[in-house]
Nucleic acid binder design. Structure first.
Lengths: 357, 357
DNA sequence: AGGCGGATTGGAAGCGCTTCCAATGCCCAA
DNA sequence: TTGGGCATTGGAAGCGCTTCCAATCCGCCT
């Protein structure tokens, strides 16, 4: 027979105050003497008390609803790892705290997507939302939502967004720097970079990190050749061809995500080059695919589920605070460079055949 | 101002009965005249009433907890798509219904994993659980759990398990049949099959489906060569080598999951064969990777999230019924063959170089 | 006809928490 | 000294639902 969980009344009795006072302490309410507050907190710890979220929301006016907004590139819908992982984290946070999660897919090609999203916010059925990239870089959109007094939290928001509202993500600049350091340490001096689309700030920051590492190592900036992709496998194929045609001498190709890295690998395989002997390739995200591909991909691991979870925890705190805004802050998620077989020391290539040969 | 949601009292007033009676109707309780039951149900529909799960569980004795049990092959932990998707579906079902989800990882190499799991069940902290493959094929385990009066639902349970308890999954035999039909229709007559580990019944059934399709097309059973893998990328590499060495004449290789198909592709690329010209390859699951790999993989799409969700819906219904068991039943998930570029018509190969050359 | 047991129904009491509002205590201006 | 205003605390009323138990109603037995 498991002992019953302690209730708020147990805490109240234990610390000799009324139930209401405990409630106030729990919710950070005003008007509680510091001494009392402390006493209550000690009781909470002593009894290992946990609030019952069901009861809290029953009393507090019904379950609240928050929304995860993501860009649906039509085709990416069914099986995207990034979005699944984010939603998983989101759901964990919400179900812990008695919130209901809904998702909202935005078609970025439709000109009125912002209008539709704002209508949803205005309808009042939503208590807060989380924006994912690249929506989370859209300063105008964030401002418009905030004007409606709706709390917003951004996943991987850029610097302009971070001064407006709360954001969660890895330090992309540092991650790019770390990847580049790894490569520079292995002896590389000529780099290619497959960037994200214009306006995708995370990808741009990764690039900046690469540039900083190069500068610190005394490598001329001209020895980096960057091209914009759109995060798809296909763009990885095409851009790697373009980059390698333009700069046959480069020995390392850094890609802004794993899918493009996979595309680049295909190009390189077709050219008959060895990886990493003739060319080192690195990705970003550490999707499950990066272990499966050949050779296994060196990449920057992002704790995507954790990011999703934290974003919603912050959002829910903001909703509970009742202020209608999530204070500007940036929560840094820990990233980790996962070194696999796709990167290594460069070796002298014999005559490099032109791509497509 | 959004109109307030109707409560159970609104329904009671609308149908002219007491709140208690409505509650009984909602929970399928006994002792309600058919006429009254029907009247209440009409009111529920008319008002578009939805029960408030928070209130239900507050009143009914606290939030209930269910567990997703999965085999953790130590390394697969961080980023498995299959498990993420399943958990996402599970969480959706649970959060809708006010249940709390926990997960339990089993190390299959440890001899007492069954004991640890049974201890968890006996501790009474769990109201029900969902078993995923290959645990869901373990008849003895399922029986042991059921003896403890704990409802179990299996994901992709084999035929022996299906007669014991509820199970959700695709019709693997039919999916194997469909894949084989596609290949036979394209002109293939000599097949390889990379199976799952012994005891993994879904994979075995897929093989049976392939065999049935061959038999129906009048292809001798001897023209199929099967080998057991363990669902890993690595085993796909190794077994495809073995199979192609033994049977250089085969033109199509069917794999029991996508990861092994990816491994097989690597082997084939290394041999310098063209896909699908020299060899068609198919997978199973439609993980995100199957679109990313080159060439894109023909595979059987499984709605994994949906399966996870249904499994928990069934489990929660069983828990709510209070009988302590989920009635034996098999819910078939819709699968779909996704034809991509890794399969096509066989063409005459010139001298096939031995693998590894 | 009187009485009894089972089938139906409703009344009342909370589940654990929050919010509203009244009660108390205290400090400072008048 | 007295009253106003503010900080602090507690009492009471539910949130929407279920469970326990009492109240009815009915058919059937003696």
């Amino acid at each position: 027979m498991p002992p019953k969980k302690p209730t708020i009344d147990d805490v109240a009795a234990h610390s000799g105050v009324a139930r209401v006072t405990v409630s106030r302490v729990l919710n950070g309410g005003p008007n509680v003497r510091a001494e009392v507050r402390e006493r209550v907190q000690r009781s909470v710890a002593a009894l290992d008390y946990k609030v019952n979220v069901q009861a809290r929301f029953l009393a507090g006016g019904g379950s609240r609803q928050v929304t995860l907004v993501h860009e649906s590139a039509l085709d990416s819908e069914p099986n995207s790892y990034y979005h699944s992982a984010l939603e998983l984290g989101a759901l964990r946070a919400c179900s812990n705290r008695g919130f209901t999660l809904s998702t909202f897919a935005v078609d970025p090609t439709s000109p009125d997507f912002a209008k539709r999203l704002l209508e949803l916010v205005e309808s009042g059925r939503i208590d807060g939302l989380v924006l994912t990239p690249p929506l989370s870089d859209d300063v105008a959109l964030v401002q418009a939502i905030m004007r409606l007094q709706c709390p917003v939290v951004c996943v991987s928001g850029g610097p302009k967004v971070r001064v407006l509202t709360a954001s969660v993500g890895i330090d992309d600049e540092a991650a790019g720097y770390a990847i580049a350091q790894l490569l520079i340490g292995a002896g590389h001096r000529n780099f290619g970079y497959i960037d994200g689309p214009e306006g995708h700030i995370s990808a741009a920051q990764r690039l900046q990190g690469v540039q900083r590492a190069m500068a610190e190592a005394g490598i001329p900036a001209a020895q980096l050749y960057a091209q914009r992709g759109d995060f798809t496998f296909r763009s990885g194929i095409e851009l790697s061809e373009k980059i390698l045609t333009a700069r046959g001498e480069l020995t390392a190709l850094v890609c802004a995500n794993d899918d493009m890295a996979a595309g680049a690998m295909l190009t390189v395989h077709r050219m008959g080059w060895a990886i990493p002997g003739d060319l080192s390739i690195s990705g970003f995200d550490d999707t499950p695919m990066s272990e499966i591909i050949w050779p296994p991909l060196t990449t920057a691991h992002q704790p995507i589920r954790w990011v999703g979870q934290r974003a919603f925890e912050i959002l829910i705190d903001a909703v509970n605070s009742g202020t209608g805004v999530a204070g500007a802050s940036f929560e840094t998620a820990p990233f980790r460079i996962v070194e696999r077989a796709s990167t290594g020391r460069p070796r002298n290539r014999k005559a490099a055949p032109p791509p497509g040969a």
